[in-house]
Design a protein around this nucleic acid. Structure first.
Length: 850
RNA sequence: GGACGAUUAGCUCAGUUGGUUAGAGUGCUACCUUGACGUGGUAGAGGUCGUAGGUUCGAGUCCUACAUCGUUCACCA
């Protein structure tokens, strides 16, 4: 074995072997089922650290459950990611000199599919590097034919129920991706903008209104101006006409509550085709809807001479014209929020168009109702995210699902004149034309937990509902909520019992990782440098449920160091158990230390078990880490060195190490497999070994106390030795109380070896002494020095002071009847005992100070 | 404006249902190179737990208010 841990060597080939042995494949019907479906990554690119985190959590759960005896199924898959992928494919085509929109749809789609295959390969290889135990025999893609069938089934059913409708509405329109978006695909940012005050002249007088707008180019879509019916300044002017600035067009003055008397001049322009509120005003007053923008973000013929000019260029030119004509009264800086497209980052335009929508209120009601039933609800971890979810569900708006793209599930609707046919199959007869649009990607993702399990043909109920879904809080609205309401609607059941929500990965300075900041970290680079085990252990041990995680390379290094520590512990065990593995394993005549480490292991298993079931992986990692490093390596291995010829010691060394690698396997699959194989005769994988189990019989409370006492004595002596700068020539005299006296006498050989000294009966001549005080007696340290031992006195004095302080505190506490009456009795007892010990110790110290 | 989260050691973070000397990693200081590991070992310094009140025998933990940072929803002519 190499002295330095080599992650590249250890991690190579293992994944292929696991695959070959079909260890990731589920389906053993004798075992209880357990199922997770992966949140399908987009086929737009490579996996990032967020994916690594998300999937590692799932792999930990799956590997743990598999070792616990479950038929653990983890279904892999990928998402077609409509807008994002189409943009990437287009970008590539353009860079090759092809205009993607000039292609025919089928040709383009072929290219998109080859893109998909290309990236699917990359993603699969990255999953492999991470060590994810995915059952590839069940892999799905959101555009697969069976998924398409599920999508159509859902669309047609909801349409027939009246939950899906087509209508002309104001939607969020992305002029770069040239498609409609749902409201949650818009990201609002607070920004400074200019509020332009425009002069709307009355048609038949010199009087005018001052109207403020941040989007002057939309005046071409104005069809009225509105004042509040209660506004005495203007309400008598209803139905009079005003002239749109720069245009020779008259529009009426209307009375509507929408106009806020307090805001600006109290008069607002109404642009029904480019503003949600105005659209509603328009409906109330039967106003025309004038669209003044083309789908690509340029002005249309309603803008007259500005036709075909970009919307922002038009704004600039128009403002100049208004200025020249004296129609711009003033400009004012304001901050307001501007909507950007989540995908293309283009400024969103509210736009009147005919789109498909899901009417969500009934579905939402059902979902909210279901959350009140403890037996059928989806359990959120951490719980607080349930409120976030319910809050959104309560205020939900209809979901715009049509997208003007080529990459996606085409809407199963056909038109012929005024007729419409919605169905899984095209209508018979001539002249029908299918809707050009596709569905929102999330429409298909929403079916993921059951569409991947054979729905609607035959839903595999064995794995449904899924046991747990793992995802980040950023997609609760996009995905989690939609999976829940669709599953309740179509299966009358939750899609998963539990949903585990994690945070986002940030950079070392707490900033979001993003392409534009260039602060992203490629998990494959990290794996190359430190190994997947180190990356995984870093991710799992440094995060707490629902909280964001800062990426810190130093912490990955620390995880690597842990790897190296285990590796070298293994080296030690192997070097010293050459005749093992053999059938000679024995736990006969266990020593005090053997019992101690077995009991500590047992405690570790118990804590691990408890925490892992609660998804508290940081606790699991830290518990195992400290057991391995502080108990097994620092103490047990050190102590074992004085007893290495004993087969029992060898057996315990191997046994505990084997249990350690099993405990760690879900977190660090590669190195644990490597080590497990070194002690495993039959060559079966650690993946299918049994996860360590707590054993009530191995508590050895007495032995734990004894060893903890020995550790305390050793540590205290080391401390005194260092504080007093005592060289290695020193001796100890045991003057402890009876019980402890014998404890130390029984083990004085190894204690002496560890402390590099020995016990003597009397102080050797010419030596000075320091008395080390414990609650249970004293040990005298004899040392060879010409210096006086004032330091010793100072130390004692200091110790005395803190002791007195503590004794006073405790005495007061115990004198307080409220405490002794109300506090739990065991607490009161332990306080009394501590007080006794402290008083004893104080006596001894005072004696010495005399 | 509503809701949620964060505020604990120099830094990054844990801290279960309140239990009395608040933990880890990293960094820092001193010492140690006897074969598991110097990517290590040993010992140590370092915190009035954001502020102010309150409940309680007892508060980092529960309640109220405030402050700072962040997230999110809504509004935005």
């Amino acid at each position: 074995m190499e002295k330095k841990y080599d992650h590249k060597q250890v991690e190579s080939n293992k994944y292929e072997q696991w695959l070959q042995q079909k260890l990731f494949q589920a389906g053993d019907l004798k075992k209880p089922p357990f199922c997770i479906v992966i949140p399908p990554p987009n086929v737009t690119g490579r996996l990032h650290l967020g994916h690594a985190w998300d999937t590692t959590i799932q792999d930990v759960i799956i590997r743990y459950k598999r070792m616990k005896g479950y038929d653990a199924l983890w279904i892999p898959g990928m998402d077609h990611a409509g807008i994002a992928t189409q943009a990437k494919v287009d970008e590539r085509l353009r860079s090759q000199g092809t205009n993607p929109r000039g292609m025919n749809r089928d040709e383009w789609t072929k290219i998109a599919w080859s893109w998909k295959e290309e990236y699917a390969k990359i993603i699969r290889s990255q999953w492999g590097k991470l060590g994810l135990s995915l059952d590839y025999s069940r892999e799905k893609f959101t555009l697969d034919p069976d998924l398409n069938n599920a999508v159509n089934e859902v669309f047609v059913t909801l349409y027939n129920k009246g939950y899906i409708y087509r209508g002309e509405r104001i939607i969020h329109y992305d002029p770069v991706a040239m498609t409609a978006l749902s409201n949650i695909e818009v990201i609002y940012k607070e920004e400074e903008a200019i509020l332009y005050y425009l002069k709307y002249q009355l048609a038949d007088s010199n009087q005018y209104f001052t109207i403020a707008t941040t989007r002057p180019e939309t005046i071409f879509g104005d069809t009225a101006i509105a004042v509040n019916p209660n506004d005495k300044r203007y309400n008598q002017m209803e139905n009079k006409m005003v002239i749109i600035p720069t245009l020779d067009k008259k529009i009426p003055i209307i009375l509507d509550e929408h106009a806020d008397m307090e805001f600006g001049s109290g008069v607002v322009k109404i642009t029904p085709a480019h503003d949600q509120n105005d659209f509603e005003v328009g409906n109330r007053h039967n106003l025309d809807r004038v669209i003044c923008l083309n789908p690509n973000g340029t002005m249309n013929n309603a803008a007259g001479k500005y036709e075909n000019m970009d919307r922002f260029q038009c704004r600039e030119k128009l403002v100049n014209e208004l200025k020249e004509k004296g129609l711009l009264l003033r400009e004012e800086k304001i901050t307001h929020s501007i909507g950007y497209s989540e995908r293309s980052n283009a400024i969103i335009e509210p736009y009147l168009s005919k789109q498909w929508f899901v009417k969500v209120d009934e579905l939402a009601k059902h979902t909210i109702e279901n959350q009140k039933n403890a037996k059928t609800k989806v359990n959120f971890f951490p719980e607080r995210f349930e409120n976030v979810f319910l809050n959104w569900m309560t205020n939900i708006q209809d979901w715009c699902i049509s997208r003007q793209l080529w990459w996606g599930h085409r809407i199963p609707a056909w038109y012929k004149d005024d007729e419409i046919h919605v169905g899984k199959e095209p209508p018979v007869g001539e002249g029908w034309v299918q809707d050009e649009d596709v569905l929102d990607t999330w429409f298909s993702s929403a079916l993921w937990p059951f569409a991947t399990l054979g729905w609607p043909q035959r839903l595999n109920r064995r794995y449904f509902p899924n046991n747990v879904l793992v995802t980040g809080y950023d997609i609760i609205f996009f995905w989690v909520s939609r999976m829940i309401f669709q599953s309740l609607e179509f299966n009358n059941e939750r899609p998963f019992q539990d949903v585990l929500i994690h945070g986002l990965i940030r950079d070392k300075d707490g900033r979001k990782m993003s392409k534009s900041l260039g602060n992203g970290v490629d998990p494959m680079d990290v794996i190359d440098q430190y190994g997947a085990d180190a990356l995984r252990f870093f991710l799992m041990s440094n995060s707490s449920p629902g909280q964001d995680l800062r990426y810190d390379e130093d912490k990955v290094k620390a995880a690597w160091n842990f790897n190296n520590k285990i590796w070298n512990a293994t080296r030690f065990v192997l070097l010293n158990t050459k005749d093992f593995p053999s059938p000679k394993h024995t736990f006969k005549r266990l020593s005090l230390y053997d019992k101690w480490i077995l009991a500590r292991l047992n405690e570790t298993i118990l804590e691990t078990q408890k925490a892992i079931e609660n998804f508290e992986f940081n606790i699991v990692c830290n518990t195992i880490y400290s057991f391995v490093w502080n108990d097994y390596c620092d103490w047990y291995i050190e102590l074992s060195k004085f007893n290495l010829e004993s087969p029992t010691t060898k057996s315990v060394l191997i046994y505990v190490l084997t249990e350690i690698v099993k405990l760690l396997h879900p977190f660090m699959p590669f190195v644990t497999e490597e080590i497990y194989q070194k002690f495993n005769n039959d060559q079966t994988s650690i993946m299918i070994s049994n996860y360590p189990q707590y054993n009530k019989k191995l508590r050895y409370k007495d032995e734990i106390n004894k060893v903890e006492k020995i550790k305390e004595i050793i540590t205290t002596i080391r401390n005194v030795k260092q504080e007093n700068k005592i060289s290695n020539e020193y001796y100890l005299i045991n003057q402890l109380n009876r019980e402890e006296l014998y404890l130390i006498t029984d083990h004085q050989i190894e204690i002496g070896k560890i402390l590099k000294t020995s016990f003597v009966k009397e102080k050797p001549a010419n030596m000075q002494e320091i008395i080390i005080t414990f609650a249970y007696g004293k040990i005298i340290l004899c040392y060879n020095s010409t210096t006086n031992n004032n330091i010793d006195k100072e130390m004692l004095q200091k110790e005395k002071e803190t002791l007195i302080e503590s004794i006073n505190k405790r005495t007061n506490l115990l004198a307080n009847e409220n405490f002794t009456k109300k506090a739990p009795p065991n607490l009161v007892d332990s306080e009394k005992q501590k007080l006794n010990e402290e008083t004893e110790k104080l006596k001894l110290i005072e004696e010495q100070l005399k």
